[in-house]
């Protein structure tokens, strides 16, 4: 048996050793370092200067940061709710109503989830284009003339115009999760409800949704945290513009670190960007606690 023990030691050493070292170096260490960076005045090239909490002081007085955070907050409420309602509704129809086309829809509705964010963003850029966009052209067919109107170029509209792409790309993933959760609910529960004369709506609100409480909660958490971390789709579609009207907290931080001086003015302000990153971390924890509180975790047995 000692031979086996040596083999085991060797295997663990070779298997876990390099991977764990890589993980520590490329994942854990950078996460810890960002806390330290937030205390520095550093552009990544010149020597770093320790400035204590000055970055945080600057951050709380930074109106661009607050605007970006406000945008993120609005998205974090609207986008998850829309995705939740649409995906739950579609999941219910697909699992509880045996339409002929349901099997095809299941495959199609999930499809946007496998698309790269760049492609989703470009599709919507083509839809919203002023002169050759799909939307204006369809509206024209319905006798509304928006020719030459750039949906993403209008300060008041661009912010809201970014919601449909996020919903469009997000529904498929949750739809599949909700469908599988619905299939797991015993049929017998519905049968007795039908005998008691419950309508579809009653069955949905009294049986299906309460039994899915746990999974809905997890999904909502996933979505909200994801929205706060959003960078790519906004970066590609508007890069925070026009005039900062679509800037979100993740993108603001990203542009402060790597950007070409778009939103906040400066670039490569690593220290300040890291301070915002730390603040974002606090917001994410806060969002999690808030969701835990708002949606009580009722354990349902069936």
């Amino acid at each position: 048996m000692t031979k086996l023990r040596i083999q085991k030691r060797l295997f663990v050493l070779l298997a876990v050793g390099p991977a764990f070292a890589g993980y520590m170096l490329f994942t854990l260490y950078p996460n810890l370092m960002s806390a330290y960076y937030s205390l520095l005045d550093w552009n990544g090239i010149s020597s770093a200067r320790f400035i204590g909490l000055s970055n945080f002081k600057r951050m709380f007085g930074d109106e661009y940061m607050w605007a970006a955070l406000r945008h993120s907050l609005i998205y974090a409420v609207t986008v998850p709710l829309l995705i939740l309602v649409i995906s739950l509704f579609l999941a219910y129809l697909l699992t509880n109503r045996g339409y002929r086309e349901s099997a095809f829809y299941k495959v199609l509705f999930f499809f946007p989830n496998v698309l790269p964010m760049v492609v989703i963003a470009l599709i919507w850029a083509f839809i919203y284009d002023g002169n050759f966009g799909l939307l204006n052209s369809v509206l024209k067919g319905l006798t509304f003339d928006y020719d030459g109107y750039y949906w993403l170029g209008d300060e008041k509209i661009a912010f809201w115009a970014l919601i449909p792409p996020q919903v469009w790309g997000g529904v498929g993933f949750y739809l599949i999760i909700f469908m599988n959760a619905m299939i797991a609910i015993p049929k017998s529960l519905y049968e007795s409800a039908i005998l008691d004369g419950a309508t579809h709506f009653q069955r949905l609100t009294v049986i299906t949704l309460p039994l899915m409480n746990g999974i809905i909660r997890v999904c909502l958490l996933f979505m909200v945290l994801g929205i706060f971390k959003t960078i790519d789709i906004v970066l590609i579609l508007t890069n925070g513009g026009p005039a900062g009207s679509t800037d979100v907290i993740g993108l603001y931080m990203f542009n402060l670190s790597f950007g070409k001086g778009v939103a906040g003015g400066g670039m490569h302000t690593y220290g300040y960007a890291s301070a915002i990153g730390m603040f974002l971390f606090v917001i994410l924890v806060g969002a999690k606690l808030l969701i835990d509180k708002l949606i009580p975790n009722k354990q349902v047995e069936f």
């Binding site: 764990f20 993980y23 520590m24 170096l25 490329f26 994942t27 854990l28 260490y29 950078p30 996460n31 370092m33 960002s34 960076y37 990544g44 945290l225 971390k229 960078i231 993740g250 931080m253 990203f254 670190s257 790597f258 690593y270 960007a273 890291s274 990153g277 730390m278 974002l280 971390f281 994410l284």
Partner: peptide, 21 residues
């Protein structure tokens, strides 16, 4: 446990230190 810890990290703040590294 240490590996699973990364599931709770936001990841987004690691971008800059990762780049420097």
């Amino acid at each position: 446990a240490m590996i699973m810890l990364s599931l709770f990290l936001p990841g987004i703040n690691a971008l800059v230190p990762q780049y420097v590294l």
